[in-house]
Each structure stands twice: as C-alpha cells, then as structure tokens.
Design a protein around this nucleic acid. Structure first.
Length: 701
RNA sequence: AGCGGGGUGGGGUAGUCAGGAAAACCCGUCGGGCUCAUAACCCGAAGAUCCGUGGUUCAAAUCCACGCCCCGCUACCA
C-alpha cells in the first residue's frame, strides 16, 4: 500500500470553470485519484477556490458588490461543476476561510523567523484617482527602449523587462488616469537562496515530462530573483508582521499553501487532527496536476517554500499538461472564448465529455476541442464500440437467460481472449500510473473491441439454437469482459461504469471494487438500458468564424489631416454613408500623399475597439496590405457604407472587437485581391483589390 | 527578443530520449461479411516525399547542423 497525495491547481474564483481546467487539471487528477483508491492506496486529493487578489476586487467593484459575494458565488458554482463532472476530492475548500488563513500565517511566520522573508523598499505606481497601488498588469505605457506598448513590467514589443521608471506615459488601466510613483515597503521571499537545493532536488527528476523538467531547469539557470510576497490591497490574508496592517499576502503565495491547509482541514473535519502528517511528514508521493502556465509555481516556488519551512514532503511528480484550444484558439476568460462547465453540463452527459477529453487530453501538446470531432468520437467510438458492446451482451443475456449463465463448455479461443483482455486491463492501470491517461483510455476501448470481436466470432445467436451449453459459456465470457470493462473504465467514466455495475446485478459501487480483472458471478440482471445516446451538436454550439464578427465597410475618404504629434500618421475623415462620418488614425503617411487619398474608396473595420493613438481617438481602422512594412491600401467598388464580406461566412458583427481578435483573422494578398480562408474578399459590386500591385501572401493589417 | 514544446495518410494521435524488416492506433472513405445489438458490430482495401535542406550511418520519423511554420512561457488566464 502506498500513500498518494494529489494536488490539483486551484481554480480562480473570478469566473466559471471552463473545459481547459477540466481537461488539464481536474480530470487527470480525478482519473489518477480514482484509480489509486481502487488500487487500495491511501489517497488524499485536495484543491479549492483561489479567492484572493486584485482581479476579484475589480470584478466586485464593477458589479458593485463585495469581493466576498463574488467568491461565494463562484465557489458554490465550482462545487456544483465538480459534482456534475464527477470530480472527487477528499477536500475541496477555499482560500478565504479562516482555517486556511491561519495556516498561511503560521507558514509565513516560520519562513520569516528563519530569515527567508525580509523587508525592502520599492517604488510602485499609485493611482490617485483609484486611491490604490496598481499591480503590474494594470499599468500600461510606452517602452523606454523601443517605444512599443509596455504592459506592467514588460514591453510587449521588445520583450524587455522594465523598471518602473522605464515606462513612459504610464496609464492606469482601470480609470485611464496617470499614476504617480510612490515609495512602498514590501516583504520579499528569498527565492534566490534555494537555487542550489532546488537543482539538487531536481537532479533525480529525469522521469518528469520533458517540457516540465526542461522549463524548470532553464528557469533556475536564468537566475532566481527574490519576489515581493505582499501587496498594497485589502482583500487577502493579513500579514502577521507588525507595520504591515494595510497590506496583504500576495495571492500566489497564499494559494499554494492551500495544499497544506486543505490537508489539515480535511484531517480536522475527520476528527483526526494529526492525520495530515501521514501525507506530509511520513512517506507519501505527491503529485500535482496543472497546466503549463503554472509550472514554475509548482516546481520552483512551492518547493522552495517547503524547503524553507522544512519537514514537509516535496512534489514527487508534476505532470503538467499543455492547453486545450477551441478551434485553434486559446481559451480566455477575458476574451470570452471558451466553454463553461455549467453550460455544457446541461447539454451533454458529462461522461461523454470526460471521454472526449481523456482521449484528446493535451498531454504532450496543445489539443483542440472540436465540436464535430466530439460528436464523431462520442457516436462512433463511445456509443458504437463501448456502449453497444455492453448493450448487446446484456440484452442477449437478459432476453435469453435472465441471469448470467455459467461457464459450461470450453471453446478454443476463450482462454486466449480472456488472457488478452486481462493483459489489456493491466495495461490500463500501468498507463494511468505513468500519467499517460490518453493511452489508458485507448486500452479501455480496446477491451470493448476485443469483446465485440469475440462475440462476432463466436456467434452466440446461432449457438442458441444449436448448442445452448456453448452459447451460455460464450455469454459468460462476454459478461466477464463487460465486468472487467466496467472496472477498467471506472476512473474515466465513473457514472457509466456504475451503471454497468448495477446492470450486471451487483450491489454497492464499482468504485469500491478492487482494481482487478475479476471473475463474473451468476447474477440475475436487470432490463438493460443503453448507456449513452448518440448526440447531435447543433449549429449553435459551433463557434462562428471570427471573420463574421468583424464589421467591414466601404468608406470614402473625405478629409485628410496630419496628426499633430506623429510624423507617420494621418487623421482621416471617412464617410460611411448611412452610418455617418467619423475619424480614424492611419499610419500610411510615408506612402500616400493627401491628394492621392482624397475621394478614395477604401475598406474600414468599423467595430474595432476605439483607440487613442498618440492623443487622437481613432474610431476604426483602414485595411491595408503589409508588404514588408510598406502599406498598400485596399480599394472597394460599392457605395460608401455597404458591407465588405466573403461568401459563405455569415456576418454577425460583434458590438466591439479587440485588436487581438481582429489580428486572428488572417487575410492575405492574392492575385491583386484579398483572400480569407481561400475565399476572396468582396463587396456588392465585385472583388476588393489592392491599390497598387502587391506580391501574393502578404498579410492585411 | 530569450526560453520551452510541437510539425507524422483527409481529421485526431502514438512512436522520437536507448536508430533497424511492412511507420502503429482511432475516426473518416471504399469494398465485403454478419444480424444478438443504439443502421450496430466484424473483416479487408485505398491513402504518408514522417515540415524542408544538408550531414552522420550498412540503416534515420528517430541522431547532428541550418532554415521554415504553429503553440506556449517570461513570475496574476488551466
């Protein structure tokens, strides 16, 4: 028997859970946990809602409620989603509860007393208007070096890490006003002190996934910096040090300690207060399930914190996953790309989703959630191979015998088939143990396939008339395969496995069975009901083409002025017919004179988020081909204000699209016209053309 | 910009670290079989310059070099 600790990354309580979290963290953790419980190992699996930090306070302000209300809402919703998707934790708790806060404070103090936490003064942006210090990502400005867009402490253009005084024209992202630099003192965690110990610890981790170990080693080699672990906010865990009453512990620092506090809380609720020590102090293997963006927290920061604390177990393995994408696009709460667990749980049997995410898990690379593929895999694999095998066996037995028949007369292939099934069953377990969940579910399906093949070859429907004893024997073997299938699939599809278990006439729960390829008993069986139904993904589920969100129009240039503070920009007045006139800023001055532009019919995106460009507001953007940095305008034919489109994509313009969304739409030059996904851009009168000849394949911006 | 991961039949993936006969699996397509079962299941076939170029080797998807393309991370999106 072994002790297994399973930590699943804490979902942030600022929104609903989406499929990415399920595919990358919750589901692999759950499969692993369920398997080990069946294996007879002692499992402690914990996680909870991560409820502190600035984003939550901002959401609260936006909605005019308290942060507590926000986190209460999402914590409850998360718990419901976990139940919907059969994710079983020993303890799923939350970071805003007092128990957790106390553990964090104790942990913090211990590091403080051991000298791993020290104070340091620093300069930070303070917004007078919002009356608060601004976290890095809420400051936007211009990079001192390349004059590109700087977000927080980093320039998005040149990638340089910026000091606060290297950000020009800083703006508060919340209110838009200019923040000032103000001195503040924070407590820092001496991460740098752990470099050697971390490297030594990582030395034995050559069994980790390539991406995890390489990324981690590289991260350490590039130098560990001490990080501030307090913030100037009110929402969070109080700092247990005098003079810091107005500050709170930084959210990531408090969240990872949750693994420990949740374990302690579980023991306490159980009435065995010291039992957490069995996992944290005594020998136990610690696994953490998370996605790739979270790697350094679990392979560097948390281990360093544990080392600093002393006497606690470090991670054994961190099988981080890649990302699940949505038709190639990354899930994003801010951009609203994603599928939310509460929504999808209403529409489909959650085991079908667990199946698709298991067989399509982003273990080694990003994988794509594709609705059509989901439909195909559920219908052609899960229903047809797995569901149908169970159903044909059970209905045959129910109809002809009423109970599972005994094994009376040997057939020549029986032994061979059973051995192969058992071998495959064992492989399922081996793969799960190695965290190769995808391979594991494939082996589960292999068991069903073996069953189908055996039944086909044995033709019990013929034997029923010719040789009943042999028929019974064949069905005994089939029933046993069904039973093994139920056990093998229990970690992956807990509800379906349980249904099979009961249909086979067993009492209790399949989840309490031992993980073994057991013999079958002569149970009476109930009227079988199909396990899964075929699904149909209606059009609404499919994400519309991002092109459809753009509102592209023909615009006539009616005025051109020079931009007051920029030498490459024009401020252009355009006429959009019925939509009226408006001003846009365009960087085409080096290539077009004012006279050339006047009266031209061009293509403009009108629902792009308004942007202030060097002090002048631009209400849209003109489209041009970027030929190695040189702009070439697109020219239209139809009257101003009319739509520009490609055939076959329905135009459903969003109220507003961000620049990022726009840049996802990849239009390129081709034969003097513009193509999107191989189709030509056009208006009512004909194709959109380029103003001047341009080579093929250049992007439109 | 730096770093990490990836590019394998029409789609989705395994194989790559330890190089070796026919590049494996699921879906789709085509042909056949069967009828117990949710038009299911079973068998067979077609279909791949394994991103490109060059190199090492008796032998390269696999090792090396260069290049192209996708994704992510860079400390607050799983």
């Amino acid at each position: 028997m072994e002790r297994i600790f399973i930590g699943v990354a804490w979902p942030y309580a600022n929104g609903s859970l989406h499929l990415g979290t399920l595919a990358g963290c919750l589901l692999p953790g759950d499969i692993f946990g369920r398997y080990h419980r069946m294996k007879g190992n002692e499992v402690l699996m914990v996680s909870g809602s991560d409820e502190h930090g600035t984003p939550i306070t901002l959401t609260a302000e936006k909605e005019g409620v308290s942060p507590k209300e926000i986190v209460d809402r999402y914590h409850e919703e998360h718990k419901r989603s976990l139940e919907d998707f059969s994710i079983k934790f020993e303890n799923f708790t939350r970071t805003s509860n007092e128990f957790h806060k106390n553990v964090v404070k104790k942990f913090f103090l211990r590091l403080y007393e051991k000298g791993y936490i020290y104070p340091k003064k620093m300069m930070a942006f303070y917004c007078n208007n919002c009356s608060r210090f601004l976290p890095d990502r809420y400051v936007e400005g211009i990079c001192y070096y390349c004059h590109g867009k700087a977000r927080g402490d980093q320039c998005e253009e040149c990638g340089r890490t910026l000091d606060v005084n290297e950000i020009l024209e800083p703006k508060c992202k919340i209110c838009g006003s200019t923040p000032v630099l103000k001195e503040t003192e924070h407590l820092f965690f001496k991460l740098s002190a752990f470099e050697k110990d971390l490297l030594q610890w990582l030395n034995g981790k050559n069994f980790w996934r390539d991406n995890v170990i390489n990324f981690t080693l590289n991260f350490i080699k590039s130098g560990l910096k001490d990080r501030a672990i307090t913030r100037d906010i009110e929402w969070g865990v109080e700092v247990p040090v005098e003079g810091y009453e107005n500050k709170r512990i930084y959210v990531w620092f408090d969240a990872v300690i949750g693994y420990l506090s949740a374990s302690m809380e579980w023991a306490k609720k159980k009435g065995a207060e010291d039992e957490w020590e069995k996992w944290w102090v005594e020998e136990a293997r610690h696994y953490y399930f998370l996605a790739k963006d979270n790697i350094p927290f679990h392979t560097i920061i948390w281990p360093a914190m544990l080392m600093g604390h002393g006497g606690l177990n470090l991670p054994y393995d961190v099988p981080a996953n890649e990302f699940l994408t949505m038709s190639g696009e990354q899930f994003s709460k801010s951009r609203g790309v994603g599928i939310w667990l509460p929504d999808i749980a209403k529409k489909f049997d959650t085991d079908t989703i667990r199946y698709y995410l298991s067989i399509n898990m982003p273990e080694k690379r990003d994988t794509d959630w594709n609705w059509k593929d989901f439909e195909a895999k559920v219908n052609n694999e899960l229903v047809a191979i797995y569901g149908n095998f169970v159903h044909r066996v059970l209905t045959f037995i129910h109809k002809n015998f009423g109970k599972i028949p005994p094994y009376l007369k040997e057939g020549e292939h029986d032994r061979k088939v059973i051995n192969e099934v058992i071998e495959t069953f064992n492989e399922v377990g081996e793969y799960i143990e190695k965290c190769h969940f995808k391979e594991g579910i494939k082996k589960v399906m292999r068991i069903a396939q073996l069953g189908n093949q055996y039944m086909n070859a044995s033709e019990p429907w013929k034997l029923l008339k010719e040789d009943v004893e042999r028929c019974k024997s064949v069905m005994n073997v089939c029933a046993r395969i069904v039973k093994i299938l139920a056990i093998a699939s229990a970690p992956y599809m807990p509800k379906a496995a349980e249904k099979i278990w009961h249909m086979l006439g067993y009492e209790g729960s399949v989840h309490e069975q031992r993980w073994e390829a057991a013999e079958i008993d002569e149970n009476e069986i109930k009227m079988p009901v199909p396990l899964f139904n075929k699904i149909e993904v209606d059009k609404m589920e499919e994400v519309e083409d991002p092109f459809g969100k753009l509102d592209l129009r023909v615009a006539k240039i009616v005025g051109v002025e020079e931009h007051p503070n920029a030498d490459r920009l024009y401020v252009i007045e355009i006429d959009l017919g019925e939509m009226g006139k408006r001003k846009i800023v365009a960087g085409i001055k080096p290539w077009y004179s004012k006279e050339e532009l006047m009266g031209k019919k061009i293509v403009v995106i009108t629902n792009l988020k308004k942007a202030r460009i060097r002090g002048v507001e631009s209400e849209g953007m003109l489209l041009a081909v970027d030929e190695n940095g040189k702009a070439v305008l697109l020219v239209a034919n139809a009257k101003e204000g009319s739509r520009v489109y490609v055939e076959g994509i329905e135009a459903e313009p969003a109220a507003e699209v961000s620049y990022e969304e726009f840049s996802k739409v990849k239009m390129v030059s081709k034969d003097g016209a513009i193509e999107y996904k191989g189709k030509k851009l056009r208006d009512e009168e004909g194709l959109i053309k380029t103003d001047k000849p341009v080579g093929d394949g250049y992007p439109v911006r």
